[in-house]
Design a protein around this nucleic acid. Structure first.
Lengths: 192, 192
DNA sequence: CGCTAGATATAGCAGTGTTATGCAACACTG
DNA sequence: CAGTGTTGCATAACACTGCTATATCTAGCG
């Protein structure tokens, strides 16, 4: 029942239908009370939906197989992140509407951890000499997040991603200590 | 009446109170119908509020006096942008909830134009050799936007701005062609 | 003054989330 | 096995939301 409600809510979210209590209950074939017994009302359900979104994101990022080029992997993680967000834009927006209070913040931490781990390998491989992996991952995340939100909001066209993401990642990774030419090649390879 | 409604809505937004039709009408001392004669219902009022937000943002950015160091100016514009967003976080979020459809998109274009103009001066001054001013401005804007949203959402602490903004701007401006050391000094001077 | 047009006030509608109550099914206990 | 407490869902009602239809009032002008 819990999972049915969450999945139905996520489905209505990606279908761009308004996620209302009664419509949700009807679709699942139950009554409105179910949302109150399994969650703490709609706000609780939204929390569960956000967490599900972060769980799917973490799964998508974990699917990116590490190679012997950690900088390429960082770009590939960015591509997977963008694909996930563009595939379910409404869910992505909902996730960050209140990303601070998740039932289990570890889910978001896991997604972020994949990025940090790749950055750590880049530092270990000597590509990011003396850089802080957490700082690099945070900057990549924040920059990509902002660009993605502007694309999802239709402020920028979809092509803006291909135009700006490689440039931004190249700038960040070069600033972290990577060789500019080699960095550009890795980013191009990872971003696809 | 129009302006009273917009200002009251903005005030309730920064006060973190729910902006409801009846509460808004009561505060202004009128009836709910006023929102329908002067705007086209609540959605129309939200559009006007978003536009007012962009107008204030453009005014704040225009207040940044240009100096003979355009790279410093870009960082100063970033600081003004961040101060405006952090000063009225709820308004900032509302602005980008539907930034694509504004009654007069020129208001947002004006704010963005200030950034582009500074980048153009940097190109003209030889700091950004052969770079595209619009691309540089877009990357700075998107990156700062993402970081600001994460701070406003309390995913990242406020100190993250001082930690990451100079690094990100330095990386972007260096990638645009500026000298690393000189760029770092300009950013430091502008970010304050 | 009389009249028209615009804006405002009132009341009601459909829809929302939430809650109180009742009912049915389940698991445990003597 | 009967009785019993607990849990989970259904029903109905409540307060609230945005919105609209109608009536009233207030200028502005001939």
């Amino acid at each position: 029942m819990r999972t049915a409600l969450i999945e139905q809510a996520a489905a209505m979210l990606v279908a761009r239908e308004p996620v209302t209590l009664r419509a949700l209950a009807t679709r699942v074939g139950t009554s409105t009370m179910a949302v109150y017994t399994h969650f703490d009302g709609m706000s609780g359900l939204w929390g569960a939906v956000r967490q599900e979104g972060f769980a799917r994101l973490a799964a998508r990022l974990s699917d990116v197989a590490p190679t012997d080029d950690p900088v390429r992997d960082l770009a590939a993680l960015g591509a997977a992140y963008a694909a996930n967000a563009l595939g379910h834009p409404a869910l992505y927006r909902a996730m960050f509407d209140a990303a601070a209070d998740l039932p289990d913040p570890e889910a978001a931490g896991a997604a972020f951890g994949v990025l940090v781990e790749a950055a750590r390998r880049a530092v270990a491989a000597g590509r990011f000499a003396g850089a802080d992996p957490v700082a690099v991952a945070t900057r990549q995340w924040a920059s990509g997040h902002g660009l993605l939100l502007l694309v999802i909001s239709e402020v920028l066209p979809r092509e803006a991603l291909d135009e700006h993401v490689p440039a931004i990642l190249g700038a960040l990774f070069t600033a972290a200590g990577d060789d500019p030419a080699r960095c550009a090649a890795s980013v191009r390879a990872g971003w696809g």
